[in-house]
Amino acid sequence: MRRLVLIDGHAIIHRAYHAYPALTTPSGEPSQAAYGFVAILLRVTNELQPSHLIVCFDLPVATFRHEAYIAYQAHRPTTAPDLVNQIEMVKEVVEVSGIPVYTAAGFEADDVIGTLAKQAVKSEQVNGASEGLDEVVIVTGDRDIMQLVNDKKGVSVYAPINGMSNARLVHENEVKEYVGVTPDKIVDYKALIGDSSDNYPGVPGIGPKAAQNLLEKFGSLEEIYRKLEEGKGKLDSVAESVTAKLLAGKDSAFLSQHLARIATHAPVGLDLERAEIKDLSKNKHFLQKLKELGFKSLVVRIGGMVSEAKPKKEKKENNQMELL
């Protein structure tokens, strides 16, 4: 199977940073986030067996969402200095690995992933096949990206669960279990309930249950407001208190819908030849970089993926490997 794996770099780094106990390089630099990222990278290549692999990162600049809503993500704390350093550490590791990195000014990594996924599985292709690809798997801990899951087009999400200790492939049937609605309704669901993490309001007073009921009954945000207009401010079988909130929050709902929707028009182009999977066990620069960082058990693990040799136990790192 020809499978493209798209890794959400910042999402995995942040998850590893909070999931792993403190770890430092031989020179004393914090490194648990970098260690966790590489561990996930190795697990992904081993378990998913991709034919193509890409890592996508955010850029430290404003995006179209910040331009649309000045308070977007405004309440997020400044990134800890040791995490900033580890993000750069991961980028150096990815660079020497030969895995291509994609970014786009004015867009988030989610948008870059959405654009690449769209290019990889064009809608006109039978069974989701495009350019010889059979499947696209997105590796992330961000549930918002589950709006891209599409069984017909062969797009799924590989989501870490229980910190970093486990992961599962999420298809359309499982998305509702995670988010509460099907992939095609996630954007409108977020438009109604808002997002405290990204700091946009949705419709004040509308919670998850009410949003689920509204979308189940009317199908989309546009249809909810069309029916409201037809009913002159009333909706069949919907409490007046709910319709009042919808009417008062209409502008906020459509702004939130815009912010929630992953863009699929970022200025990037999928280069499948460049993304062909590399044999990391033969990449001397990559292995040397891991040794410099003190990730000896990961070096052993890379060899084990090829030779099936038993890895040597290293007390400090072995305890962390149990998280995987």
Score class of each variant (00 low, 15 high):
His265Ser: 13
Ala74Tyr: 08
Ile13Phe: 03
Asp198Tyr: 00
Leu324Asn: 03
Asn85Trp: 04
Glu229Met: 09
Tyr17Gly: 02
Ala80Gly: 02
Ser27Gln: 11
Ala71Gly: 09
Val187Asp: 05
Ala117Arg: 09
Tyr20Cys: 10
Arg76Leu: 07
Ser252Ile: 06
Glu174Ser: 11
Pro50Arg: 00
Leu133Phe: 08
Ser256Val: 07
Lys282Met: 14
Thr79Lys: 11
Leu287Ala: 09
Leu169Cys: 10
Tyr20Gln: 07
Leu280Ile: 14
Ala33Ile: 02
Asn213Gly: 07
Ser252Phe: 04
Glu216Ile: 05
Met89Arg: 13
Val268Arg: 06
Val55Gly: 01
Gly304Trp: 04
Ala309Cys: 13
Lys312Trp: 06
Val203Leu: 03
Val203His: 00
Gly128Ala: 09
Ser156Asn: 01
Val84Phe: 08
Ala167Arg: 10
Ala266Lys: 01
Glu88Cys: 03
Ala22Thr: 06
Asn318Trp: 14
Glu230Gln: 14
Lys313Arg: 15
Ala210Gln: 09
Ile186Asn: 01
Ile262Lys: 05
Ser237Cys: 02
Ser252Pro: 01
Ala253Cys: 05
Met89Asp: 12
Asp236Val: 12
Lys91Arg: 14
Gly303Arg: 12
Leu235His: 03
Pro267Phe: 12
Ser123Ile: 14
Leu324Glu: 03
Asn127Gly: 12
Ser252Arg: 09
Lys296Phe: 15
Leu280Cys: 13
Lys234Glu: 13
His75Pro: 00
Gly294Ala: 13
Val112Leu: 07
Ser297Asn: 12
Tyr158Glu: 01
Val242Asp: 01
Asp236Thr: 10
Asp271Trp: 03
Lys185Gly: 01
Lys245Pro: 05
Val112Met: 07
Pro60His: 07
Leu247Asp: 00
Gln320Cys: 09
Phe286Ile: 11
Ala244Pro: 00
Ala253Trp: 02
Arg274Ser: 14
Ala309Tyr: 11
Tyr69His: 06
Ala22Lys: 11
Thr182Ser: 13
Leu228Asp: 04
Val187Ile: 14
Leu133His: 08
Phe295Val: 13
Gly9Cys: 08
Ile186Trp: 01
Ile113Lys: 10
Arg3Asp: 06
Glu108Asp: 13
Ala239Lys: 15
Leu323Phe: 15
Lys284Met: 08
Arg143Gly: 11
Glu177Thr: 11
Glu88Ser: 11
Gly304Ala: 12
Thr243Asn: 05
Ala275His: 04
Asp236Trp: 03
Phe254His: 06
Asn283Phe: 12
Asp58Asn: 03
Gly180Ile: 05
Val61Asp: 05
Lys217Arg: 15
Glu216Gly: 11
Pro81Met: 05
Leu293Asp: 08
Lys190Tyr: 03
Val268Cys: 06
Cys56Asn: 03
Val203Ala: 02
Glu174Pro: 02
Ala244Trp: 01
His18Gln: 05
Arg226Asn: 14
